[in-house]
Design a protein around this nucleic acid. Sequence first.
DNA 1: TTGACCAATCAAGAAAACTTGATATTATCC
DNA 2: GGATAATATCAAGTTTTCTTGATTGGTCAA
Lengths: 108, 108
Amino acid sequence: MATAARTDYSRAARLFHALSDEIRLEVIDLLRDGERCVCELTDALDIAQPRLSWHLKALKEAGILTDRREGRWVYYALARDTFEEAEALLSVLKPNARRLPTRGSSCC
Amino acid sequence: MATAARTDYSRAARLFHALSDEIRLEVIDLLRDGERCVCELTDALDIAQPRLSWHLKALKEAGILTDRREGRWVYYALARDTFEEAEALLSVLKPNARRLPTRGSSCC
DNA sequence: TTGACCAATCAAGAAAACTTGATATTATCC
DNA sequence: GGATAATATCAAGTTTTCTTGATTGGTCAA
């Protein structure tokens, strides 16, 4: 008999991991109403530039941010779709609406 | 002039961090339709018992799980409220509906 | 082309998270 | 009480993630 197929949660884990850092959440907050260049973010967050760059990369690799170069500046923006994806993933994990009776243990 | 007050994202970061691990997401998955004792989870996930215990603790400390001892067994269950909290936190981070024009940079 | 500026990358170290095997704890059964 | 079972905790090692300072790459202007 084949073992039961398990849902693959690697994408969800990666996505939530990108959201698991205060700096990164503040970056997202700053981008909520439009794109910003890196220097604006550096200013607003008051952190070292390579540190911000690291976190921007993490967010970008998770698909949360897009970037765009314009001359000397690089602008980052939120990727709308990814937030919908995150909502969907979260909703899959939510407890089922109907509270089922405690099932009999299948072990022990 | 006072610097602008920043939203505190420490709770959100902690919560998302708890969700950033595949094992923990599988645990949540297993609990979606009701509580389960640790031995059931150990069986289903096929991982070492202290390892599962570690992840259960992480989930519990984040408020995602509750536990209940019954004799020799300990039952874990999802905390419904925390999922609503997660949805709310995620929704705060979502890009604003109206796409604003690119603002003029405030620096550089 | 030289210099200045914005941003990414790198290398090294520090800190945090995770895994593993051994041990402790709590409850039950004989 | 003593043995046993379920779970938690601990200590040690490993891996991953993050931070920092230095360097590099790309763009513009003089």
